[in-house]
């Protein structure tokens, strides 16, 4: 078996074996269900219910990409590199017939894979909850929300790759997680003080899907922001590979 493919399978299996991954998947199911039950409990002619019920997937996406998904990415990235280095299991993989660049690539793939899985689970759970519990308008906004969920994956991958870079550069799980959270809070708060920083702050793109909603933003704007996110991904990935190549184990 190709060593990259072998380690991609190993990393995805190992991540699924963690309680944290299953816990976040459970939250991605439970939160829309609870929100749907709360909406269903409102009076039928309530303006809040009619405004929100039809679009439960979109309603769920913002809090998920603002808090839960970044937290999952930071915690998982911290475990994948700093955690494994501390436990001696990173060395276990490096002593197998696989290059360090492939080890990094397979870990980054596993992280991105579960970001996609969590988004898919959230979309399915919120769409189903919206339809069956609240009784929203079937199909109307589903295609639109599916597009929003799909495009959200890119900024999440960029954030995950940045978290991997931090994790491999910092010696401990706690340190990596604390630094990532600090960076996240600072980068999220900075545009409030300096609005022009929003264009360059990676975490300002967590609500990127809004640009794609409805008719969408002008093509030039979408192209520019897509380019910025891809550039972030390439830079973070390359820097991460270099860091792992230089890491003493």
């Amino acid at each position: 078996m190709n060593s990259l493919y072998a380690n991609m399978r190993n990393e995805t299996e190992r991540l699924w074996g963690r309680r944290k991954t299953k816990g976040f998947a459970l939250l991605a199911v439970m939160i829309p269900l609870l929100a749907a039950w709360a909406l269903a409990a409102l009076p039928e002619d309530s303006p809040i219910q009619s405004a929100l019920a039809g679009d439960l997937p979109m309603l769920m996406l913002r809090p998920f990409t603002l808090v839960l998904l970044p937290l999952f990415l930071f915690m998982t990235a911290a475990d994948l590199f700093a955690g494994e280095a501390a436990a001696g299991t990173l060395k276990l993989t490096l002593l197998r017939p696989i290059t360090r660049a492939k080890v990094y690539g397979s870990k980054a793939f596993a992280l991105a894979f579960y970001a996609a899985v969590l988004l898919a689970v959230l979309w399915i759970a919120s769409a189903a909850a919206g339809l069956f519990i609240v009784g929203g308008d079937a199909g109307a906004g589903l295609a639109e929300s599916l597009k929003a969920y799909a495009v959200t994956l890119l900024p999440m991958i960029a954030a995950g790759l940045l978290a991997c870079l931090v994790s491999i550069s910092v010696g401990s799980v706690g340190g990596a997680l604390a630094l990532m959270l600090l960076l996240y809070v600072a980068a999220t708060a900075l545009p409030f003080l300096y609005p022009q920083a929003a264009a360059w702050s990676l975490f300002s793109y967590s609500d990127w899907h809004v640009l794609w909603a409805g008719g969408g933003a002008p093509a030039g704007s979408l192209l520019r922001s897509t380019g910025v996110l891809i550039a972030y991904c390439i830079m973070a990935y390359t820097a991460g590979v270099v860091q792992l190549e230089r890491k003493k184990c």
């Binding site: 078996m1 060593s3 072998a6 380690n7 399978r9 190993n10 299996e13 190992r14 074996g17 963690r18 436990a87 001696g88 299991t89 990173l90 060395k91 276990l92 002593l95 197998r96 017939p97 696989i98």
Partner: peptide
Amino acid sequence: IEAAGVYENMSAYDQLRQAARFYP
């Protein structure tokens, strides 16, 4: 090399099964 690193939440069989994927 040095202290034996093992995946604590996996069985011995599963760890070797994963290691086996690297070899024909």
